[in-house]
Each structure stands twice: as C-alpha cells, then as structure tokens.
Amino acid sequence: MARELTLVDSGLGNLASVERALIQVGSATQITDDPDKVATSRIVVFPGQGTFGKQTDNIVSGAMGEAMRMVIQRGDPFLGICLGMQMLFEGSEEAGGHKGLGILKGQCRRFPESMTTAEGDRVRKLKIPHMGWNEVQPSGEHYYFVHSYYVDAAESSDVMWSTTYGDITFASAIRRDNIYGCQFHPEKSQQSGLRFLRAFLLGSRQ
C-alpha cells in the first residue's frame, strides 16, 4: 500500500490543482494546515505561489516551519514547488529581504528589468515575470514557469536541472538526498509535470 502524501496548506498556493495532479499520478493525498500532522507525515509536498513577506516570515519562524524541518531532518521525502522551493533556501531579496527555512544554501534574486534576448538581427526585451514554457537541462523537457525571482544556489551539487532566461541560468529543480524542489509548476505542465510528480512518488517509495 502506498504511503499517504501530505499536501501542506500554508495559505501560499493553489492546492486544488496540485492535489488533482497528485491524484492523477496515483497518490493518496491529505491536505492539512495542522503543523502536528505535517510533522508526523512520511511524504510532504509544500506548494507556494506569490511572494516572500509577512506570511512566509510567519511560516519560517512558526510551528509549520518547524514541522517541515522535522520531516526533512528525519529523512522523509519532501517536495517544494515554486515559492515552496525558494523557501527551502536561506532567503530572498524580495521586499527588502526575508528569511527562508535555511535548509539549503543560496538566495532568491530578482530577474533584472533590462534583460533582453537576440532574435536574428533584432533584440527583444524580456518580460518579468518569466512566464510560460521553458526548457530544463539536461533533461530537455519543457515546463511551465511563473516567477520574478529565481534561486541562486550556493552549491551546484544541489541543482538537478537548470533553465536559462535571457542571460541568467537558474536552478529550475533541486535535489539533495530526500529534498526535492522545482521552480516550475508541475500541476500546470501537462504530461511533463505529471512525469515529474510520478518520479518523485516513485523515488519516495524506495
């Protein structure tokens, strides 16, 4: 029997679409905002949308942050999605600077407004946020992104996949032992996203 997966309701993400995607790949899923239930969970997914700020500060310094640290330190599988991945790192430049959970070394930085890309003889200004489909390397698959900040990982060994936008290459998926993260939205990435979630679940059962 598959172990039940816990989807963290921290008020940061669109839980319904993530839950549907997880169910689609065969996961038995519970949603909870109870730190005690998260702390005793054996597989945890932490989705997030939006920005660093007061709400993320409350998570980092509160019972939910401690519960997620317990899961990770115990060695149980943990997946952070988008802002959920960014929060695994030390902090973000956003809104004057905010702390993350500090599980991994690195900072979240904003894409510069002046980024451009060459298209033949023309130069086109790139939009911020980075929104839409983009390729990850070395897998070559395409996933759906929506973000203005990116993870600048301090340790290259934590970066599983990377993506280039303009002249910046950033961590689009990370892994260290039982810790997984993705900057893209697997629940919005059609079959590629389902493959990613399925691989996470398969890895969590080993």
Rank of each mutant, 00 (worst) to 15 (best):
L7P: 07
S10I: 00
A16F: 07
A21E: 03
L22G: 00
L22H: 02
I23G: 03
Q30N: 12
I31G: 07
T32Q: 08
D33C: 13
D33W: 04
K37T: 03
S41F: 05
V44L: 05
G48N: 11
G50R: 01
G50Q: 00
T51S: 14
K54H: 03
V60M: 07
S61A: 13
A63N: 03
M64W: 03
M64L: 11
E66R: 05
A67E: 08
R69S: 09
P77W: 07
L79V: 10
G80F: 14
I81N: 11
L83I: 05
G84A: 09
L88T: 09
F89S: 04
G100M: 07
G102W: 10
L104V: 11
G106A: 15
P112I: 02
E119P: 01
G120M: 06
R122H: 11
L126H: 07
L126I: 03
K127W: 01
I128M: 08
I128D: 04
M131W: 07
W133E: 10
P138Q: 04
G140L: 10
E141I: 00
F145V: 05
Y149E: 10
D152R: 02
E155P: 04
S157H: 12
S157V: 10
M160F: 13
W161Q: 15
S162K: 14
G166T: 01
G166W: 00
D167E: 14
T169K: 12
I174V: 15
D177M: 12
Y180H: 15
Q183M: 11
P186R: 04
E187W: 04
Q191W: 02
L197R: 03
L197Q: 07
L202I: 09
S204M: 02
